[in-house]
Design a protein around this nucleic acid. Structure first.
Lengths: 207, 207
DNA sequence: TAGATTGTTAATCGATTAACAATC
DNA sequence: TAGATTGTTAATCGATTAACAATC
């Protein structure tokens, strides 16, 4: 009887987490939904509703304990798992992600890189060796990779997804702008940069 | 009396556009909402509803003209404006975006790069010279930049946004994981990679 | 004509907002 | 105590889904 949490709520949790971490760094002990909402441009009612989904974290008349709430949200998001990523496709975007520092602070680490281009196989990016894609199954098992990141061209995306699933990854983060199909047991998140840019274009075109 | 279009609808239009372009390349003349939905994992009712927001594009009993619908959606999204981008912050992510080929096919072009790091000012990325951030106002006017892309660290994001607005950009695409504030006349789209990754972590943690 | 498919209205579902009792 | 703030219920709003008349 698992409770279904709305995607909208899940997508706001990382914002709460990040702001709580900032507040913690400022030395703040207690924060109200009002203050949190002011800082994030989210209504306090929305924040309380989101948090209430997972339990009672605050104290009436007082607010929320910054450190405790941050930890609880981190746990809800599963950040304590310290997931290990493998990036498939070390082009410009894949290379940028391999260097992206904000992942580490959320508990993710890039543990393997793959490509099919012989020119870059064997080279290092951010201290991580680029492996041949043909070695995916073996290395993903050996390095205990949890998440496969797809940054290959559209034509290769589904094939790479299939290989990642066969290799046993627990989740897929797809940057190729195409629909890919994976078993329902493997969570998939699509990151489609052209949606945001097109939406911006739309809004800029309105009078 | 401007009709308010839901963000959900706007965010699906780029998917329709892309799939129609693919269908066009395949030589398809006519496509039904059913076929389009099958290819995109979106219900045909949803597609017809989205399109109906903007007018009557199809023919009952027949379907939609692929080329015509593609063009119409492109126009709704404002892609015919051939927007010119300036990327501020030529780190790994900014550099990757400067090289991102999918933008060109949507009518966007990267026309200027800015940074404050003296070591990279004057160098070229993808054939585009990196300018000093201090030259932003002058160069954005001279190069007729429409969109400012923010790929600087969180601490600098608001300052860069202010400079971009002062320089006259018509829209902002922000990759810094922080809330930035701009005048309501300047559309702002936030691209927060840690939301998707955290959501993936959440789903991977469920049972 | 019969079958296919759109455009649109009505029904349903889900998410946000408002209100307020509980309580620190 | 009085003021502040949560957690939760009810009301509202908006988006999706279902149904079907129109029509090619």
């Amino acid at each position: 009887m698992k409770k279904i949490i709305s995607q909208a709520t899940i997508d706001r949790l990382p914002l709460y987490f990040r702001m709580l971490r900032l507040a913690e760094e400022e030395g703040l002990q207690i924060i109200s939904s009002d203050e949190l909402g002011r800082r994030l441009d989210i209504t306090p009612e929305q924040i309380r509703k989101d948090l209430a989904t997972f339990g009672q974290f605050g104290r009436k008349g007082i607010g929320y304990d910054v450190h405790e709430l941050k930890d609880k949200i981190g746990n809800i998001l599963g950040l304590q798992n310290n997931w290990r990523l493998a990036i498939v496709g070390v082009g410009h975007l894949g290379g940028a992600l391999a260097n992206y520092v904000n992942f580490a602070s959320l508990g993710f680490s890039v543990a393997a890189l793959f490509d099919i281009n012989k020119k870059i196989i064997g080279s290092e990016v951010n201290g991580i060796k680029v492996n041949a894609a043909s070695q995916m199954k073996r290395i993903i098992a050996a390095k205990k990779i949890d998440i496969g990141v797809i940054t290959v061209p559209v034509e290769e995306a589904q094939g790479v997804a299939d290989q990642l699933v066969a290799a046993g990854v627990k989740g897929i983060w797809n940057f190729a702008p195409t629909k890919i199909t994976v078993p329902p047991s493997v969570p998939l998140v699509n990151e489609d940069l052209s949606i945001g840019l097109s939406a911006l274009s739309y809004h800029m075109s309105q009078e």
